[in-house]
Design a protein around this nucleic acid. Structure first.
Ligand SMILES: NC(=O)c1ccc[n+]([C@@H]2O[C@H](COP(=O)([O-])OP(=O)(O)OC[C@H]3O[C@@H](n4cnc5c(N)ncnc54)[C@H](O)[C@@H]3O)[C@@H](O)[C@H]2O)c1
Ligand SMILES: NC(=O)c1ccc[n+]([C@@H]2O[C@H](COP(=O)([O-])OP(=O)(O)OC[C@H]3O[C@@H](n4cnc5c(N)ncnc54)[C@H](O)[C@@H]3O)[C@@H](O)[C@H]2O)c1
Lengths: 253, 253
DNA sequence: ATGTCTTTGTGAACGTGTGCACAAAGATTG
DNA sequence: CAATCTTTGTGCACACGTTCACAAAGACAT
């Protein structure tokens, strides 16, 4: 998420905030569920509850797309599903390649929710010659040597990287050189890409570490009931190591 | 970030901004790499480059933790690794359970970067009786019936949900009732949890859809001011066909 | 038509995050 | 010790995001 902000004077409401874009798939999911239950219309309050957001936020989000609601009634479910799908570019099918068919890559390939949302696995690619030709999720794995040919042959613009971290940048470079302009990276590495290429990352460790941070905070707060956040301040004070750093300067373990 | 009622902004203590917390693991990763190369000190500029962020942002982030740098020199790598680890609560080992040992759950269990970052897989849990006792990643899978016993026995406070969407809320409720207060959710559902429980989600489809949005914008910027009639909307709603895929989120009435 | 009732769409206030730019701190050199 | 050089830590301004609160739009009943 570092796409150079195209400073568009907003001729029309064409500038949808990034935070809104990130929530559209959430709305779409909730709306699809309603659609399957043949619910004709939904209010911002109901839909917001289903998507787990504030209703005012939802209404403002939709206002960036246009005025698709009816006052006093709500939103037409089918119509909104279509509008959001169109906005997200899901009315077309996006061919996707997955590179690195190990534990994670195979799980991704087997993931059903992939195809049901506008994405199609065009190819699976791995560097291991022993894997070449072996089918995973019904799709034969192809060798990295053919990466460029595969990308260009299928007109792939979205790539998923599930290789070890050490190989990720190299794979990324090849993908980009072959024409991929959007990358979803599962490897724990920072990827550098040229302007115009989007990278999003999914990192399990980071998520867990964020949870651990809050978990620790919760555990420390139990001591003082309803009190002021003196503990945090005190803990930080400690780091003002005295003249002789009594705090170990080396990490244990 | 927590789902459910967020009326209370969660004790906005003298705390570290959420955006900063989310970057600390990134810094930690970069610092660990430097540490392994025995680099003694690093400047904000260098470290920022390695972590893929702006150096001013990095310095401001660190300023919330304390004054750990030396002007004219930079930051002591080992010391900073320790301080960030401590802040994130990684100086202790967090036992984690994974519920739902299918394609994804098994991949997560096999993921090495788990243990190397302060987390330990305490148990693997699945509802399939056929899986009980079978080892995955060297750990025998246990049945859901024993979920509460397992959680309490190991003092687990972090749970990972990798079940189908339809089972996620139910699993979540049981985890929370058993004492789990942090959940990492891979199922495409909005989880409701009581106050005090943190939920973070990882959703592949959402990431891909966000990429598709930007991809579409990049590709089709030449024309199409749209304005499609509503009739076209009704004509195309055939996008859903998930035979099993993910069970759509149920709406709380 | 008129009135009432529901719910949208949005202006405005507020909160959070980002990045510039620079004074101050400390290392280092002469 | 003073001068110089490097790099931190942060004040400030601005951009972005969230939430409140309410006028206006439209449905629906009478
Ligand atoms: N498994 C998880 O749950 C998980 C979680 C978070 C992050 N990750 C990350 O995802 C990545 C993959 O994890 P995994 O568990 O599947 O690892 P894995 O070792 O099982 O699979 C890696 C695959 O990548 C292939 N590969 C290696 N170099 C390649 C190259 N240059 N080009 C193409 N393919 C190449 C290997 O042959 C192998 O099949 C790792 O970076 C890991 O850190 C995994
Ligand atoms: N595989 C992926 O790459 C991927 C990507 C994104 C999201 N997801 C989501 O992750 C989840 C798991 O995906 P998967 O591909 O591993 O599915 P899967 O069907 O392979 O595995 C699901 C596992 O959960 C177990 N399970 C079902 N109900 C349970 C319950 N009540 N308690 C405990 N265990 C239960 C099943 O026995 C099975 O082993 C799904 O919600 C999926 O939508 C998967």
């Amino acid at each position: 998420m570092a796409t150079g902000r195209t400073h568009r004077p907003a001729t029309r409401s064409r500038g949808i905030p990034e935070a809104t874009v990130a929530r559209l798939p959430l709305y779409l999911r909730a709306l699809t569920a309603l659609s399957e239950r043949s619910v004709p219309t939904v209010s911002s309050e109901e839909l917001a509850a289903a998507a787990g957001v504030n209703s005012a936020k939802l209404r403002k989000d939709f206002s960036y797309l246009g005025s698709y609601g009816t006052r006093g009634v709500g939103y037409d479910v089918e119509y909104l599903v279509y509008q959001i799908s169109r906005e997200l570019g899901l009315t077309q099918d996006w061919p996707v390649v997955i590179v690195g068919i190990g534990n994670l890559g195979a799980a991704l390939a087997n993931y059903g929710g992939f195809a049901s949302r506008g994405f199609r696995i065009a190819a699976l690619i791995d560097a291991d010659p022993a894997m070449a030709g072996k089918p995973v999720a019904g799709i034969p794995v192809q060798h990295t040597d053919d990466l460029e040919k595969i990308i260009k042959g299928h007109g792939v613009s979205i790539g998923v990287i599930a290789t070890p971290a050490g190989a990720a940048q190299q794979v990324c470079d090849r993908l980009v050189a072959a024409g991929v302009t959007s990358i979803l990276n599962f490897a724990p590495t920072v990827l550098s890409v040229p302007d115009g290429v989007d990278v999003r990352k999914v990192d399990l460790s980071i998520e867990l570490q964020i949870l651990a941070f809050h978990e620790q905070r919760k555990a420390g707060e139990e001591a003082l009931p309803d009190g002021l956040p003196a503990s945090a301040a005190a803990a930080r004070e400690n780091t003002d190591k005295g003249p002789d750093g009594d705090v170990p300067a080396v990490m244990p373990a």
